[in-house]
Amino acid sequence: MSEYSEIVMEHFSNPRNVGEMKDPSGRGKVGNPVCGDIMELFIKVDENEIIEDAKFRTFGCGAAIASSSILTEMIKGKSIEEARKISNEAVVDALGGLPSVKRHCSVLAEEALTKAIDDYMSKKTA
C-alpha cells in the first residue's frame, strides 16, 4: 500500500491506546458499516478539564485505524478547549497525508472527538 504514508502504516501496525475504557468521562461513537467505518472514542477528563486519557476502538480500513490512533495521541494532555480545535486537517497533517479517498476517515475522527466532548459536557451539566 504505497499510497499510505509511513506514519499511517506505523500507526496501523502499532496503534496506540486501543481498547474500551471503563467509566469514561465522554464517549463518541460515529460511522456505520455501509460506509465501512465505525469509530468509538473514549476520553477521561480530570478536574482541570484536561484529557488525561483516551482510548479507541475502530472497525475500518488502515486509514481509519491510523486516524483514531493518532487522534488519541493528539488529544492526551490537552484541555477540552484545545481539543475542540483539532480539525480533520490536523489529523491528516499529523499522519503525513492521506489518500484523497481516505480523507473521510479523518473527518470521522474529528466527529468522534466532537461527540465524545459533547457527551462529556452534557454529563457535566447534568
Binding site: M9, F12, G36, D37, F59, C61, I65
Partner: peptide, 10 residues
C-alpha cells in the same frame, strides 16, 4: 465477521 477487509489486506 466484524472486520473491514482492507485492514486484513494491509
Amino acid at each position: 465477521d466484524y472486520l473491514e477487509g482492507e485492514s486484513i489486506l494491509l
